[in-house]
Simulated assay, not measured.
Amino acid sequence: MNILITGQHLDLTPAIRAYVESKLDRIVRHFDQVIDIAVILGVDTPADKDRRHRAEVNLRVKGDVIHAESRAEDLYAAIDTLVEKLDRQVLKVKEKIKGHRQTSIKHIPEPGAEMP
């Protein structure tokens, strides 16, 4: 799994990078089929003073791309809400994949047959 963390109008410190990686471990723990993760952290223009810090993520899994975005006053708060949103989406995709793995038609007993 590859993790790419970039900053727009923001210096990425090792503390921020470590914080993001530790939060993304939660996602990988729930769903291990992650191919790569691209995280974009940034600061928006001063027009939106209440929620200046932005965090986005594109998570590639087999056959799908999951996108989540979050804005907050604090960068760490934006990262926290981003990971919560992403976690819900990943669990939804995981349940969707797991739901399609039902037994095949040849293994379903016929309506009049007895169960062993």
Rank of each mutant, 00 (worst) to 15 (best):
M1I: 15
I3G: 03
L4K: 06
I5Q: 04
T6M: 03
T6E: 06
G7W: 00
Q8I: 13
Q8V: 11
H9E: 10
H9Q: 06
D11Y: 00
T13F: 00
P14K: 12
A15C: 10
I16A: 13
Y19D: 07
Y19A: 04
E21A: 11
S22G: 03
L24D: 00
D25H: 02
D25Q: 08
R26M: 06
V28Y: 00
R29V: 10
D32G: 10
Q33A: 13
I35T: 11
A38I: 14
V39Q: 05
L41C: 11
G42L: 06
T45D: 15
P46L: 14
P46C: 12
D48K: 01
R52T: 12
E56S: 05
R60N: 09
V61K: 04
G63D: 11
G63N: 04
D64W: 15
D64N: 13
D64R: 04
D64C: 14
V65L: 13
I66N: 10
A68V: 04
A68N: 06
E69V: 14
S70H: 07
D74C: 07
Y76G: 15
D80Q: 13
D80E: 11
T81Y: 00
E84L: 09
L86P: 04
L86I: 01
L91W: 00
K94H: 01
K96E: 13
K98F: 05
G99H: 02
G99P: 02
Q102I: 15
S104L: 12
K106N: 12
M115P: 05
M115H: 10
P116A: 11
P116I: 14
